[in-house]
Simulated assay, not measured.
Amino acid sequence: MPETKQTASDRMIEAAGRLFSERPFDAVSTREIASAAGVNLSAISYHFQNKDGLYRAIFKKIILDLKPVRVGLAILLENQLTAARDDRKAYADFISAFVSRVVDSAFSPSTRWKMRLLKRETEMPTDCFQLLMEGHVDIIHDLLGILLAKISGESPTSEKIKLEANAILSLCLQYALNEELVKARMGWSSIGSSEIQKIKKITTEMVLRSVNLGEYCGQIKEG
Rank of each mutant, 00 (worst) to 15 (best):
D10V: 04
D10M: 08
R11E: 03
M12V: 02
M12A: 01
I13L: 06
A15V: 08
A16N: 01
A16R: 00
G17W: 08
R18H: 09
R18P: 00
L19K: 07
L19R: 05
F20C: 05
S21A: 15
S21R: 04
E22W: 05
P24F: 03
F25V: 07
F25E: 03
D26A: 14
D26G: 06
V28H: 02
S29Q: 10
T30E: 14
R31A: 13
R31Y: 06
I33Q: 00
I33M: 08
A34L: 08
A34F: 04
A34Q: 06
S35P: 02
S35I: 04
S35N: 10
S35Y: 09
A36I: 08
V39P: 01
N40V: 08
N40M: 07
S42K: 12
S42Y: 09
A43L: 07
A43P: 04
I44N: 01
S45P: 00
S45K: 05
Y46F: 13
Y46L: 14
H47K: 03
H47Y: 15
H47D: 04
H47R: 02
F48N: 09
Q49L: 10
Q49E: 14
N50E: 10
K51H: 03
D52W: 07
G53H: 11
G53D: 11
G53E: 12
L54T: 05
R56Y: 11
A57T: 09
I58M: 07
K60R: 13
K61A: 13
K61P: 02
I62N: 09
I62D: 11
I63Y: 13
I63R: 14
I63T: 15
L64I: 12
D65M: 15
D65Y: 10
P68Q: 15
V69D: 14
V69C: 11
R70A: 14
R70M: 15
R70K: 15
V71K: 14
V71R: 14
G72I: 12
G72S: 13
A74H: 08
E78G: 12
N79R: 15
N79L: 08
Q80A: 10
Q80R: 13
L81E: 04
T82Q: 09
A83Y: 08
A84E: 06
R85N: 07
D87F: 00
D87L: 03
D87T: 04
R88E: 08
K89N: 02
A92H: 02
A92T: 02
D93V: 01
A97Y: 05
A97H: 07
A97R: 02
F98D: 03
F98N: 02
F98V: 02
V99M: 02
V99G: 03
V99D: 03
R101H: 05
V102C: 10
V103N: 04
D104I: 09
D104L: 12
S105L: 10
S105I: 09
A106I: 07
F107G: 00
S108R: 10
S108K: 11
